[in-house]
Design a binder for these strands. Structure first.
Length: 204
DNA sequence: CCACGGATTGGCT
DNA sequence: GCCAATCCGTGGA
């Protein structure tokens, strides 16, 4: 018994819509990675939208390359890249074919498999409260905790390895937007969407 | 072929 | 608050 028995997997049509529409709905949804018999899951609490047609910060802005190829496919696939030569970051590809849009998953709130995530991140199973809040509060941290790397590039999110589940926000929760973090080009666009006051945000 | 810099993190000051 | 670590995609010569 795990969360996949309770919630419904998100279907292709959800991802194939406009990137901003999807990005606004993503906080609250549940990221799941299945590894053998064990499940890792967490609620998405923070995302950023990237649109190669008008957004210079998007990896797809300069056109199609081998690295960003998956961004130009149809929505519902995973785009993974290496950041600063050190950390992996994962994105949900959105829109129809040739759009070049994706959403960076920046932070999640752990639900299942916290022991495994802790081991992936800190090499031990039990964490201090401080480490717990630091477990998945950033894009590189999410990938490390979930064990997501370049081998997961292009995975179909409607398959059964990595996928999202439908879920509603908890009572009183609110999604708000701000400028995106850590970019210099097209920095003014308010395309970061997150759950207000959530303790797992990469920044408040 | 080579130089540059980035959607980050963690450790030190 | 600042900065090093560390890789490779990208673009110019």
């Amino acid at each position: 018994m795990n969360i996949t028995h309770i919630k419904e997997k998100i279907r292709r049509e959800f991802y194939q819509r406009d990137v901003l529409t999807v990005a606004k709905e993503l906080p609250g949804k549940i990221l799941v990675k299945k590894k053998g018999k064990s499940y890792l899951s967490g609620r998405i609490v923070e995302v950023e939208a990237y649109d190669g047609e008008i957004d210079q910060a998007a990896h797809s802005y300069l056109g199609r390359t081998k690295r960003n190829e998956i961004m130009f496919g149809e929505g519902g696939y995973l785009y993974v890249y290496l950041s600063y030569g050190v950390h992996f970051c994962c994105n949900v590809v959105t829109g129809v074919k040739n759009k070049g849009t994706a959403i960076l998953i920046r932070a999640v709130e752990p639900i299942e498999g916290i022991g495994i995530m802790s081991k992936n991140r800190f090499g031990k199973k039990s964490l201090t409260e401080k480490e717990m809040n630091n477990l998945t509060s950033g894009p590189g941290k999410v990938c490390k905790a979930f064990g997501i790397g370049i081998s997961h590039y292009g995975i179909d999110l409607t398959g059964d390895k990595i996928f999202l589940l439908n879920a509603d926000l908890k009572k009183g929760e609110k999604i708000i937007s701000s400028k995106r973090i850590g970019i210099t080009k097209s920095a003014h666009l308010p395309w970061r969407f997150f759950i207000k006051n959530n303790p797992y945000l990469s920044r408040k």
